Amino acid sequence: MTGSAEQIALLVSQVVARLAEREQRIYALRLQQLRQGIDPVVFLRHATLHLQLPDLGFIQRLAEGDGDDPAVSALHEAWSWGVRVHISLHQQLLAALPRSKLLPLPLSFSDHLGHQVRLSANRLLSYRDVATLDPCWLIVGRKTLLTPLAKECLPTRHIQLLRQE
Results as ranks from 00 to 15, higher is better:
residue 109 F to H: 04
residue 99 R to T: 14
residue 73 S to T: 12
residue 25 R to D: 09
residue 98 P to M: 12
residue 73 S to M: 13
residue 67 G to C: 10
residue 114 G to S: 10
residue 105 L to R: 14
residue 41 V to Y: 01
residue 30 R to F: 02
residue 67 G to S: 12
residue 73 S to R: 14
residue 46 H to K: 04
residue 95 A to K: 05
residue 28 A to K: 11
residue 93 L to K: 08
residue 142 R to E: 13
residue 67 G to R: 15
residue 77 E to A: 11
residue 23 E to C: 05
residue 132 T to A: 14
residue 26 I to F: 00
residue 94 L to R: 09
residue 47 A to S: 11
residue 102 L to G: 05
residue 122 N to S: 11
residue 22 R to F: 13
residue 16 V to T: 12
residue 111 D to A: 06
residue 34 L to D: 02
residue 89 L to Q: 07
residue 120 S to R: 03
residue 48 T to W: 02
residue 31 L to C: 10
residue 12 V to N: 09
residue 78 A to L: 10
residue 46 H to C: 13
residue 81 W to L: 00
residue 127 Y to Q: 07
residue 51 L to K: 01
residue 125 L to G: 05
residue 135 P to A: 12
residue 133 L to T: 06
residue 121 A to V: 01
residue 130 V to R: 00
residue 61 R to D: 14
residue 35 R to V: 03
residue 58 F to T: 02
residue 101 K to Q: 15
residue 104 P to W: 02
residue 72 V to Y: 06
residue 132 T to S: 13
residue 108 S to I: 01
residue 134 D to M: 10
residue 43 F to Q: 03
residue 34 L to I: 07
residue 57 G to N: 13
residue 98 P to E: 09
residue 104 P to I: 04
residue 37 G to L: 12
residue 97 L to K: 04
residue 137 W to A: 02
residue 115 H to G: 04
residue 136 C to W: 03
residue 76 H to N: 14
residue 109 F to V: 02
residue 53 L to M: 12
residue 37 G to E: 04
residue 23 E to Q: 15
residue 136 C to M: 06
residue 63 A to Q: 07
residue 105 L to D: 06
residue 32 Q to R: 15
residue 131 A to L: 03
residue 15 V to G: 00
residue 54 P to M: 10
residue 79 W to P: 11
residue 139 I to E: 01
residue 54 P to A: 08
residue 44 L to T: 07
residue 130 V to Y: 01
residue 117 V to Q: 02
residue 31 L to M: 11
residue 69 D to L: 12
residue 99 R to A: 14
residue 85 V to R: 00
residue 124 L to A: 01
residue 95 A to E: 09
residue 81 W to K: 00
residue 123 R to I: 06
residue 74 A to E: 08
residue 93 L to Q: 15
residue 63 A to W: 07
residue 61 R to K: 15
residue 57 G to T: 14
residue 123 R to D: 10
residue 20 A to N: 12
residue 77 E to N: 09
residue 57 G to A: 15
residue 65 G to R: 13
residue 66 D to F: 12
residue 76 H to I: 04
residue 97 L to P: 00
residue 80 S to W: 04
residue 125 L to R: 00
residue 73 S to G: 05
residue 135 P to H: 04
residue 85 V to Y: 04
residue 12 V to M: 10
residue 119 L to A: 04
residue 11 L to V: 05
residue 128 R to Y: 09
residue 58 F to V: 07
residue 51 L to F: 07
residue 67 G to T: 04
residue 85 V to Q: 01
residue 71 A to C: 12
residue 23 E to R: 15
residue 57 G to Y: 01
residue 97 L to H: 05
residue 81 W to P: 00
residue 23 E to M: 05
residue 109 F to Q: 02
residue 120 S to Q: 10
residue 113 L to H: 08
residue 64 E to I: 11
residue 32 Q to P: 06
residue 22 R to T: 07
residue 117 V to L: 03
residue 61 R to M: 13
residue 59 I to T: 07
residue 35 R to L: 11
residue 82 G to Q: 10
residue 89 L to W: 01
residue 35 R to T: 05
residue 115 H to R: 14
residue 117 V to G: 01
residue 110 S to T: 13
residue 17 A to H: 11
residue 44 L to D: 06
residue 125 L to C: 11
residue 95 A to Q: 11
residue 88 S to K: 07
residue 124 L to W: 07
residue 104 P to C: 05
residue 52 Q to C: 10
residue 20 A to E: 15
residue 78 A to T: 08
residue 141 G to K: 03
residue 40 P to K: 00
residue 94 L to V: 06
residue 22 R to G: 07
residue 110 S to M: 06
residue 136 C to D: 05
